[in-house]
Design a protein around this nucleic acid. Structure first.
Lengths: 346, 346
DNA sequence: TCATAGAATGAACACGTTTTCAATTCTCGT
DNA sequence: ACGAGAATTGAAAACGTGTTCATTCTATGA
């Protein structure tokens, strides 16, 4: 009966394609799923008809029965923060290539836990969740997201070469910061820096905590006095003000290690434009991330680099492996850092 | 039978909540939908039990029957481009408050049409689509997205005060650039600029075309010679190189109007660090967007501003109105621009 | 007390797909 | 030509929800 009323309104459905191609509705479903048995010429015909009718399987219906939404939730406190936006960009590209889509959610900028958001997000049924919400224990996340598998971004305390933390309970990405920080401190020490300050990121961020901890450790090993800490929150403006305070109220420094590149930009601008100090002659500056802006001539920042592509590839690997083998024990990937030398130390 | 096997694995379902609260499954559905008739104390009980079981209605199932996915597709060529990332950030926040989620897709950076992506996106059933893909006619978009309603970002040719383009066929956001450009050219002219160059954005971008067109028009009206055009693509690096070419190969300029702020940063850095020219003394620079970075001290850019919050509010209004009244004729919102004066003209 | 309207309730259906399972057809070696 | 195993096929069940509709309950007024 639906033969004549060739509905031009609304989506085409598998039933319509089946009717037009004179096959069963099930055959249409199979045509769109590889690894199912269907005579090749039949599949070809169906796909042709589908294209004519502008048909694509409805992912909501598909998700309902298969339990796979092909959505990956990404929680970010601040999309326009440079590192985050670059990671979202690369991640979206990679996920798209694998047939997934990025579902974006914003949480509080202070990096605190946001239960309400997790419950909200759960309703959308993501297959996996990458939590930039940093101070959340993975099992808390798992409790809130029952079906979706969270990926935990882990900063090992002791960064031994083979620090697997053996048998992690959850999938995680280990970020090792020692190499980059060691190279950075060595460079500063080589240029005679004595009083090194740390310009922190958001207090509750685990990344920030790990960076400060590693800096202290490396400086102690090299016989340097502990760093003075100036309180930032990963933003340009906070870094700008904190730097001014460090020199006007505090005792200053001859080198500043910032928790992220954007913060380093604030430090540099405060030094040059407000305090009339020269970078790197009077004060040396090192950042963290190596975002795209760091090579811009006005900053030309020496910084500790994550390889973004490598990081994204690792995340995608974790997601795919978990979906392929849902009951496997925790997977983990490890990411290293290294120093990129530019013009703010010298 | 499912009473005893209190499945701790997988999502809680409405059936489980109903069983535990000794009510029917329909009552659970009603408890989560306002405007349905249900005894208050019963609703309260159900919501309490639901919270205990960590239950949220499955949006895939809900979408299947109601035809509303509560997903808004956003197509971007480049997430980490500053303007885009700030818009995505604000939009996600606003949509989240209205019960929607942002579905992110990346397309080609040259702003060309991407049919494959549209078909891919359609599978996810977005309720609405905001197309940053700029050279796509709205009816083409509509054909590919049957159910989702696209929002067209429109740059009216003649920017009369009431240029509604009366009765648009599709929902659209009109962006008026005349006011900002007029103020910018007036400022440049006031400082005696004679040879104004335009550093373009991506060739296929409609925003870029509209900006160049408006600049030509305003300059002609004020008796200025047409601008020299330097070819960029909205990126820092392209702007940097194009500026060098403009002075080394071409005839230079005493003022440069960039198609976007990031491009203006490239212009400024090329002028200062490569060409050893002073900004604003030797060459004046104006940008477009007023992104957060524009007030950073190293650039301190004079620029034509969109009000981002206003823009996002307008977009959300368009989305909500269309979903409330699906068969209404095309809605439209209008957005104006104005100049923000900082330190790169003077 | 009774009639009546309105609120509250639950059974059944619908949404568009994948998956299961049994039935049918095909392929190939003897 | 025949049988066995593999490939192909379609009917029916399932996924978790919102909606319709007929029924039951409650409160109000005469």
């Amino acid at each position: 009966m639906t033969e004549s009323e060739q509905a031009p309104r609304g989506r085409a459905t598998a039933e319509m394609v089946a009717a037009r191609a004179k096959v069963s509705r099930v055959a249409v479903s199979r045509a769109f799923n590889p690894h199912t048995s269907l005579k090749p010429e039949k599949r070809e015909l169906i796909l042709k008809v589908a294209q004519e009718l502008n048909y694509t399987p409805d992912r909501a219906a598909r998700a309902l029965v298969s339990g796979r939404s092909h959505l990956v939730g990404v929680i970010v406190p601040d999309v326009c923060s440079h590192w985050e936006s670059q990671e979202i960009d690369a991640l979206t590209t990679a996920l798209q290539a694998e047939g997934f889509a990025t579902l974006l959610f914003k949480t509080r900028t202070d990096y605190s836990m946001d239960e309400q958001l997790l419950a909200y997000m759960r309703g959308f049924n993501p297959d996996s969740v990458i939590a930039f919400v940093e101070n959340v224990k993975p099992h808390t996340l798992a409790r809130f997201l029952d079906r979706a598998v969270p990926i935990y971004i882990h900063y090992p305390q002791a960064e031994l070469a083979d620090d697997a933390g053996d048998e992690p309970l959850h999938d995680r990405l280990n970020v090792l910061q020692r190499d980059g920080v060691e190279q950075a401190v060595a460079l500063l020490q080589g240029f005679g820096a004595k009083r090194i300050a740390y310009l922190s990121g958001a207090e509750k961020s685990r990344a920030n905590g790990a960076r400060e901890r590693m800096l202290r450790q490396v400086m102690a090993e090299r016989g340097l006095a502990p760093p003075v800490v100036a309180g930032g929150d990963f933003s340009y403006d906070a870094a700008y003000q904190a730097t001014i305070d460090l020199f006007r109220v505090g005792e200053g420094a001859d080198a500043i290690f910032a928790a992220n590149d954007v913060g380093a930009f604030g430090v540099i601008d405060a030094l040059r434009h407000e305090l009339k100090l020269r970078v790197p002659e009077d004060v040396k500056v090192i950042g963290f991330d190596d975002i795209a802006q760091s090579h811009w001539k006005s900053y030309n920042l020496t910084t500790v680099k994550f390889d973004l592509d490598e990081r994204v590839r690792a995340l995608v690997r974790l997601i795919l492996r978990r979906l392929t083998t849902p009951d496997a024990p925790g997977f983990q990937e490890t990411l290293n850092t290294r120093l990129v030398v530019r013009g703010t130390v010298g």
